[in-house]
Amino acid sequence: MRENGVMSRRRVGSIFVVAAVALATGFLVAGQVKVQLLTPSNQVARYQALVRSVQELEASNAQSRLKIAVLRSQIDALEAAAAQRSAATQALQSQVADLRLHAGLTPLHGPGVEIDIANGVPGADSGGEVGYLVNFKDVQDLVNLLVANGAEGIAVNGRRITPLSAFSGSGGQVIIDQGPPVSAPIMVLAVGDRLRMEAALGDPSGLPDIRAREVQYQLQISFRGRPDLALPAYDSSLDTRHVGTL
């Protein structure tokens, strides 16, 4: 009887121990689930919210640029109609047309070059560096090279460059003026002195950073002369709100 009582207490004790261990394990698993599953899912939700914001802003950006293009075309028609009525207005309109052409506000066509630039491959020892990606400085360097060698008009992935254009971005994203980001492959079209531009692009001492990454990361750059290229008009704001003429 006594032995049976001892056995029964032992069994009850061991059941309690197993239950306590099971409870502790349950709490640990629950804690782990909370930390390891819920946090990433919150991160995903936050990330997705950011992506949605970018998409909405990009849609609004595209709509605004389309509206600007339509308004500019309607204004052109109204100015042309006004110019029919007066010689003074016609002279003014001609001046403005020339200024718009130089500012990139009207389409441009002529001989030129097409440059294609694409991402390379990440190096084995790149250690998180993004040298294999085409970045905004590559586009900036390319545009500056073309400007210095006879380009009269330039467009990057269909976005026209103006006298006030600026390039920014992070990683492989390239932001030009008020447009949405673009990324490689990037096509640059330049109308102007085709032979000079081709010679500059073929010069191994030009674009030193791109050349170095061509070797290190197999960044790809190629160009070819074209007899007739068409560039679109600039479709954003040429902001001069803070500038007054003397």
Binding site: L57, N61, S64, Q178, S237, D239
Partner: peptide, 12 residues
């Protein structure tokens, strides 16, 4: 994009 869209709206 916020800044760009503000600029585009001002231009519009």
């Amino acid at each position: 994009l916020h800044r760009a869209n503000d600029s585009l709206q001002a231009e519009t």
